[in-house]
Amino acid sequence: MTVVSGPSELTPELLSEVLGAKVSAVTWERVGSGQIGACYRLRLDGDEEVPRRLIAKLAAEDEGSRAFLAPAYRAEVCFYRDLASTVTIRTPRCHYGALSDDNTTFVLLLDDLHPATQGDQLAGCTPAQAADAVANLAGLHGPRWCDASLLDVPWLSAVGEDDAASLGEVFGPAVETFTDRFAGVLGDRDVGTLRDTAAAITAWATGRQDVFGLVHGDYRLDNLIFPPGDAPGVTAVDWQTLSIGHPLRDLAFLLGTSLEPDRRAALERPLVGAYHAALAAHGVTGYGLDACFEDYRFAALQGPLITVLGCAYGARTERGDRMFLAMAARSCAAIRDLRTLDLV
């Protein structure tokens, strides 16, 4: 399989080979911020069956960071290669994927979803968008719900006791860094909730393991592509954080970070109910709505966990700071409202 390290290597000759159709010309432009990898929009000319637009995802331009990011590259390429066809969640069609032997270089050629647009983590989402995203999420979880064969997939990881202990050692200092960065802006109640979350995170990370499945890990608005005009049909992208865990973590993360507290409180029971009904439509049995909502409550620590670690390890930007503050405030409010820490 051919792997490239930069967009200039995506020549008409190479694209003709990997797409199986004659490409006569290609141009490209950079899109996105590229904190984990680099994304480019390709415009192609060629035979009738050649897609006219594609998104190319490649490894980060900073070669020094690629070894650290190798597990993320492996997860995304292998998701499209091994698992996308076994679930019903909407994802971009993958025309080609390849990964180097050491997992530090990769290429994915995906459908360009234009004119659909990325969700806005700062602005939040409408009730219709939330309902669409919830139903789509069930298409990831339902088909492989408690599927023991996932435990044999070599590139998928689940959190064990040692992993949970390491997470606790990392997350506590990350919370202090986060609160220092946003001192005077982050509310005192939220600071307290973040510190209480840090104290509970080790026990939480290995809790409720009787229910498990595929977890996107970062299922939020910036990783969702919505059709124009609030029409249904949202598509999920960015599969670098895929793992095995409690599926409700994705749902709690989505609702807890994408909706303002008052709106979330008003909508979360019907949205959890819609998710539960969608699971049943995918064949999930023996999992009642009450248990689903209790797991949703328990899973709410996913919000500050991903928010704080994303802030700690991502490149700092003005929009990023505002986004992380909004996500932290929303998810901390959810933890308090749902009394999540009482369940850990």
Results as ranks from 00 to 15, higher is better:
residue 126 T to I: 07
residue 27 T to K: 11
residue 93 R to D: 05
residue 73 Y to A: 00
residue 77 V to H: 04
residue 251 L to H: 05
residue 67 A to F: 08
residue 145 W to R: 08
residue 226 F to T: 07
residue 286 G to Q: 01
residue 276 H to C: 06
residue 54 L to G: 07
residue 203 A to W: 04
residue 47 D to E: 15
residue 45 D to T: 10
residue 79 F to Y: 11
residue 316 R to D: 13
residue 316 R to H: 12
residue 108 L to A: 03
residue 10 L to C: 10
residue 85 S to E: 15
residue 337 D to L: 06
residue 231 A to M: 02
residue 119 G to P: 12
residue 299 A to E: 11
residue 214 L to G: 03
residue 272 V to T: 04
residue 313 Y to S: 07
residue 176 E to P: 06
residue 83 L to S: 06
residue 287 Y to R: 06
residue 67 A to S: 13
residue 97 G to C: 05
residue 22 K to D: 14
residue 174 A to R: 05
residue 185 V to S: 11
residue 301 L to P: 06
residue 64 G to E: 14
residue 13 E to H: 09
residue 114 H to A: 14
residue 135 A to F: 00
residue 18 V to N: 08
residue 68 F to Q: 10
residue 309 L to S: 05
residue 264 R to Y: 07
residue 315 A to N: 12
residue 247 P to R: 02
residue 152 D to V: 02
residue 269 R to Q: 13
residue 277 A to P: 04
residue 285 T to F: 01
residue 65 S to T: 10
residue 45 D to M: 04
residue 319 R to Y: 13
residue 204 W to P: 10
residue 333 A to R: 11
residue 255 L to I: 08
residue 110 L to T: 03
residue 278 A to F: 03
residue 74 R to V: 00
residue 145 W to F: 13
residue 250 D to W: 01
residue 206 T to R: 11
residue 28 W to Y: 15
residue 301 L to D: 07
residue 184 G to M: 01
residue 295 D to G: 00
residue 250 D to V: 12
residue 314 G to I: 05
residue 193 T to I: 10
residue 182 F to L: 12
residue 111 D to K: 07
residue 22 K to W: 09
residue 187 G to E: 08
residue 193 T to D: 10
